[in-house]
Write a protein that binds this DNA or RNA. Structure first.
Lengths: 136, 136
DNA sequence: TAACTGTTATATTATATATATAACAAGAAA
DNA sequence: TTTCTTGTTATATATATAATATAACAGTTA
C-alpha cells in the first residue's frame, strides 16, 4: 500500500501515516495478519524519520488496529481486536458532533450529510473485500 | 452562552473555544448579529489569556462564522456569510472520510453511523430555532 | 554468525500553544 | 472633550509537541 506525505498539511506526519493505514484497512488493502513495513523501511520509503513512523504505529497499536512484536514486526490486528470500545465511541461521537454542528451552521441538511456518509462508505466498500468487513 | 475549558483535553484551548461557539450557533443559542463577549471579557470569564480567545475568534472569522470589527466588537455572521464553501467541503469531507474509515475497521455499519448522525442533528435542532436553521 | 526487528536513550531544531505586559488607534459613551 | 472599550500589534517567556539524527540494545530470523 502506498502512503503519501504532505509536508504542507495541517496534520502532523505521524497522523497522516496513522490515517492512511486506517484507510488502507477500511479499503481492504491491508488485511488482518498482514505485515506492515518495518519502521526503518517505511521511514526510508517516505523520506522521514523512523521515530515518526514509530509514533504512528504506536498510536495504531494503542487504538487496537495494529499488533507490534519486538522482533517479528508489525501486523494488522484481527477484527475482534479492533472492535468498537468506549474510547472509540467517545472520540467518534465528538467528531460527529462537530461535523453536524458545522453542517447546521452552514445550512447543510441531515440528508446531505447522510448522503455523504453513504457515498464515503461506497468508496471504501465497492472494491474487493475479503477481510470480513462486509455485511455488518 | 457558557463555555467550559478542559485543561486536560487533547484539543488546544483556542480550539475548544472555537468548537463550543460553533455548537452554540448550531443550537440556536447564538443568533446572527448577536454580540459575543470581548476578548478580554471572555478571557476573564474562562480564566485564560485574551490572546487565546482572540486566536479562536480569528479562526472563526476566517471560517465565516464571526465578523470582527476593530472597535465595535465581535458578532455572529449572517447565515449567507457562512454558507458551505470549497474549504469547508474539503475539510468536512476529510473528517467524514476518517470517521467512516474507522467505523468500517471497527465493524460499525453505515446504518449505525447514519443513526448517530440523525440523533446528533436532533440534539441540536430539538430546541427553539429562530435563526433560519430549520427546513434545509 | 549476520541481518533485521522494535525499543530506548540522548540531543538538537523547529513549530505550536499559552501566558504576561504594554501600547496603539478608532469608535462609543459619558 | 474626555473617558472607556474595542480589537490589534509588539515583545518576551515558558512549555509542549513534532521531527530529526545518531547510537546502542536485545531478541528473532535467515
Amino acid at each position: 500500500m502506498i502512503i503519501h506525505i504532505n509536508l504542507e498539511s495541517k496534520y502532523p506526519i505521524y497522523t497522516q501515516v496513522r490515517n492512511q493505514i486506517i484507510e488502507g484497512i477500511a479499503l481492504g488493502e491491508l488485511k488482518s495478519g498482514e505485515r506492515l513495513p518495518s519502521v526503518r523501511g517505511m521511514a526510508s520509503d517516505l523520506g522521514i524519520n523512523l521515530h515518526t513512523v514509530n509514533k504512528g504505529y504506536k498510536q495504531l497499536e494503542k487504538e487496537g488496529f495494529l499488533q507490534i512484536h519486538r522482533q517479528r514486526g508489525v501486523i494488522v490486528a484481527p477484527e475482534e481486536h479492533r472492535k468498537a470500545d468506549d474510547f472509540y465511541r467517545e472520540d467518534s461521537g465528538h467528531q460527529v458532533k462537530m461535523v453536524v454542528a458545522e453542517a447546521i451552521c452552514r445550512g447543510v441538511s441531515e440528508e446531505e450529510v447522510t448522503r455523504l456518509i453513504k457515498e464515503t462508505y461506497q468508496t471504501f466498500e465497492k472494491g474487493g473485500d475479503t477481510d470480513g468487513n462486509s455485511s455488518h
